[in-house]
């Protein structure tokens, strides 16, 4: 296995673990953690392709990764604020018990 393939397989594994968590766990915070894992797997792909791909001096992979990180940080902040607001109203973080649209 070439080095790039190793990094890609690792990032697919992390993505899959995050996806499995999002699909199976029922706690809203855990779902958010799964989404963070998936975003980080994508970031690892950006860096691996920057390192082993063509034209690394253009820094495209690192730039993509920095911007993806900024967007992911914004997503985490807003997502956790939504979870806290829902918890105040419904007193639960279990996704199966969040059934009200206009609680």
């Amino acid at each position: 296995m070439t080095p790039l393939a190793g990094y890609l397989v690792l990032s697919s594994l992390i993505f899959t673990v995050g996806l499995a968590g999002v699909l199976t766990r029922r706690n809203a915070i855990l779902v958010l953690i799964g989404i963070e894992l998936m975003l980080n797997a994508a970031n690892l792909n950006f860096i691996a392709f920057w390192r082993f791909g063509a034209n690394p001096e253009a820094l495209t992979g690192i730039m993509f990764m920095i911007f993806a990180m900024g967007v992911a940080a914004a997503e985490a902040a807003v997502g956790l604020a939504v979870i806290i607001a829902v918890y105040r109203r419904c007193k639960t973080t279990n996704l199966d018990e969040m059934k009200l649209l206009k609680g």
Binding site: I29, G61, I66, M69, I83
Partner: peptide, 30 residues
């Protein structure tokens, strides 16, 4: 290890320093 020093340290600062603490606070608050 891939040679992206800035990305590695930004990951430490943003994810472990900020997002990790944010999630811990959310866990405590809920």
């Amino acid at each position: 290890q891939l040679g992206a020093q800035f990305a590695g340290f930004a990951q430490l600062l943003v994810y472990i320093g900020a997002v990790g603490i944010l999630i811990v606070f959310a866990v405590l608050l809920t």
